[in-house]
Simulated scan of single mutants.
Amino acid sequence: MLIDSHAHVSPVWYEPVETLLGQMARHGVARAVLTQMIGQVDNRYQADCVRAHPGRFASVVWIDPAAPDAPQVLASLADEGAAGVRLRPGARSPGDDPLAIWKAAQACGLPVSCVGNAEAFCAPAFAELLQAVPGLTVVLEHLGDTSKPMESEADGELRYTVLRLCRFDNVILKVPGLGELVPRASTALRDGPTFGGAAAALLEAAIAAFGAPRLMWGSDFPVVSSREGYGNALGLVRECLLDHAAPVREAILGGTARRVFWKET
């Protein structure tokens, strides 16, 4: 079962869910995790999508973590069927416990889809956070960085440094389309996209560090349409996994997301 762990839909920005469903049908993707856009605290559209297409979607919501009632809001969203919450690594709660929102996610059994950059993920404060909520699954988006290509040696070093977070059992990585990791080759439009080299090496390093059960593929739809496109985001990752055993491919391309966001084995 192919599952896209990172897609955005909206009636007012990007694309509606019907456009995503078309891409999923074309490329054989069975399910997708609807990941709320940063700053959009109205999660009703995603909830409607989940209800309208039973079994096909999971909703990862966005809330304002600085709101005094954020833990209560999150609990209500969990009761209504939310499958996760999206937070920045530096998100903190007001009041006596700055980690209240993270602890609320842990108490609700909601994984956190964590959006940030490599610098934030490598900071001591983030390691301290992970230690404070060992029962919380934290899924780092974009292989632990923003959706920008590695354009310098320093960029690559930072991405590899993020992989050291494999020492925390509660950390999982989202594997993006490889076109997100490296700039488009000058020959890509003539000869077709290929993202070997640095992108493939980083993917292999992530597999070696975390293991396939802690990796999940996500397209970043519809942003991926401005890079290699949905089909290539899936196809080129699958191509890089051809030399791996079937359980590795199955975990990265669906099994991990199914376990984390649908609580299925």
Rank of each mutant, 00 (worst) to 15 (best):
M1K: 01
M1L: 10
I3L: 13
I3G: 04
D4F: 00
D4S: 00
H6I: 01
A7E: 00
A7I: 01
H8L: 02
H8W: 03
P11L: 07
P11K: 04
V12M: 04
W13M: 08
P16M: 10
E18Q: 15
T19P: 11
G22H: 12
Q23I: 03
V33P: 00
M37Y: 13
Q40L: 10
D42E: 12
Y45H: 08
A47M: 15
D48Q: 15
D48R: 13
C49H: 12
H53M: 03
F57Q: 02
S59C: 06
D64Y: 14
P65D: 12
A67E: 01
A70I: 09
P71Y: 04
A75L: 12
S76I: 11
S76R: 15
L77S: 11
D79N: 14
E80C: 09
A82F: 07
R88E: 13
P89V: 03
R92T: 04
S93M: 09
S93I: 09
D96F: 05
P98G: 13
L99A: 06
I101E: 05
A105G: 05
C108Y: 01
C108F: 06
G116R: 00
N117I: 14
A120K: 13
A120C: 12
F121N: 08
F121I: 07
F121P: 09
L130S: 02
Q131T: 15
A132M: 04
P134N: 09
L136R: 13
H142T: 09
G144A: 05
D145Q: 11
K148T: 14
K148P: 07
P149R: 07
E151T: 15
S152F: 11
G156H: 01
L158E: 10
L158T: 08
T161W: 11
R167T: 13
N170Y: 10
I172D: 11
I172Y: 15
V175S: 05
P176Q: 02
G177F: 05
G177R: 01
L178T: 02
G179W: 08
P183R: 09
S186W: 14
F195M: 12
F195W: 12
A198H: 10
A201I: 09
L203R: 03
E204M: 02
A205L: 02
A205H: 07
A206V: 06
I207N: 02
I207V: 07
A208G: 03
A209L: 08
P213G: 00
R214K: 04
G218S: 06
D220L: 04
V223S: 11
S225F: 04
S225M: 15
E228A: 15
Y230R: 00
G231R: 03
G231L: 07
N232A: 11
N232S: 06
G235Q: 01
R238I: 03
C240Y: 05
C240E: 13
H244M: 00
A245Q: 06
I252A: 05
G254Y: 01
G254H: 03
G255N: 11
R258F: 10
V260H: 02
K263N: 12
K263V: 05
T265S: 13
